[in-house]
């Protein structure tokens, strides 16, 4: 363009002004941009503050003894370490994921691929959305009355894991469904036209390409359940000793230490609460990083030029 411009054309370009409100529009644009940035900063400040507090105090509280020893004392004088709670948290996460991932993923596959929007799918979608909005303490109470008392499992890993599974279920179900729905219809049609049936299309194509999305949902659900306290207090209670028992044996977990030990007026208890918080943040961080690495590996074959 530039090389063919005659002097007259150049002048024309310079002379062209925007409409009368042009300057005020530019101004509005700038204000909007600044306002958006401001809101982000305001929202980010408390987050950064919390993170700073935990990391600073958490790191200060790190000691070999606190990481490897069991908790001493419970509701009053808190001391010792939190290895029982760390192990318990990981145990509960693993157990609940083991229960809920297959159910949620298969449910999502059903909703996206087989249901044809029938009434079953409408009802389950609706209930899942409601379930996602039920306060976790209510789920905890249901778990307590049904699993702990009625089934007679007592405070136990199984009761806690099932309660957490119920909490995670709607997220996994819906993200799986959405991830599968994002696979373009043309891919399914192409496979259908080759004479493949629904199951082989799902196995060989759609599930494979929805996998990153599904994994994201699963990890999101796990991250949410890691931070839960209320449902666990009702179902797992707390224990100063690590356990691998599924029934009739209370389990310790990190969020309990944050919740209870932060209220005990000794510096040793506070140190444990801070350390537990730090570990929780690290667990969530680890899950996120792992998912990113995993996603990259999963999506890699899609981008490679060979």
């Amino acid at each position: 363009m530039a090389q063919v411009e005659t002097p007259q054309e150049k002048r024309k370009l310079v002379e062209i002004r925007g409409p009368r409100n042009f300057r005020s529009r530019v101004l509005t644009d700038k204000i909007a941009k600044t306002a958006c940035l401001g809101v982000i900063l305001v929202a980010f400040y408390p987050f950064a503050d919390i993170l700073y507090l935990f990391i600073l105090n958490g790191v200060r509280s790190i000691s070999w003894a606190r990481l490897t020893e069991n908790t001493v004392g419970g509701n009053s004088l808190g001391g010792g370490g939190l290895s029982n709670a760390l192990e318990g948290s990981l145990f509960l996460i693993g157990l609940s994921a083991l229960i809920v991932v297959p159910i949620g993923v298969f449910g999502g596959v059903y909703l996206a691929e087989f249901s044809n929007n029938n009434w079953i799918s409408k009802v389950s979608r609706f209930t899942a959305d409601i379930l996602a909005g039920v306060p976790s303490i209510v789920l905890g109470y249901v778990g307590f009355s049904l699993l702990v008392l009625y089934f007679g499992w007592g405070f136990s890993a199984m009761a806690a894991a099932i309660t957490l599974a119920v909490l995670m279920f709607p997220y996994i179900l819906r993200t799986t469904e959405l991830a599968l729905r994002r696979v373009p219809e043309s891919i399914r049609e192409g496979a259908l036209a080759l004479g493949s049936n629904k199951t082989s299309i799902i196995n060989r194509l759609t599930l494979r390409f929805a996998l990153p999305g599904i994994l994201t949902g699963v990890l999101l659900a796990i991250s949410i359940s890691v931070g839960e306290t209320a449902p666990l207090i009702y179902t797992a209670s707390f224990s100063n000793y690590a356990t691998t028992q599924l029934f009739h044996s209370p389990v310790g977990y990190l969020t309990y230490m944050v919740f209870v030990f932060s209220q005990i007026p000794t510096s040793e208890a506070h140190a444990l609460a801070y350390l537990a918080s730090l570990l929780l943040v690290l667990i969530v961080l680890a899950i996120n990083l792992a998912s990113r690495v995993g996603l990259r590996r999963l999506t890699k074959p899609l981008e490679s030029e060979g």
């Binding site: 036209a193 004479g195 074959p301």
Partner: peptide, 19 residues
């Protein structure tokens, strides 16, 4: 399904599988 084995189809927009 077997019918589609005998009567194949190519679509308007190229739809290669991302493999």
């Amino acid at each position: 399904t077997l019918l589609k084995l005998r009567v194949g189809m190519v679509f308007q927009k190229p739809n290669p599988f991302p493999i």
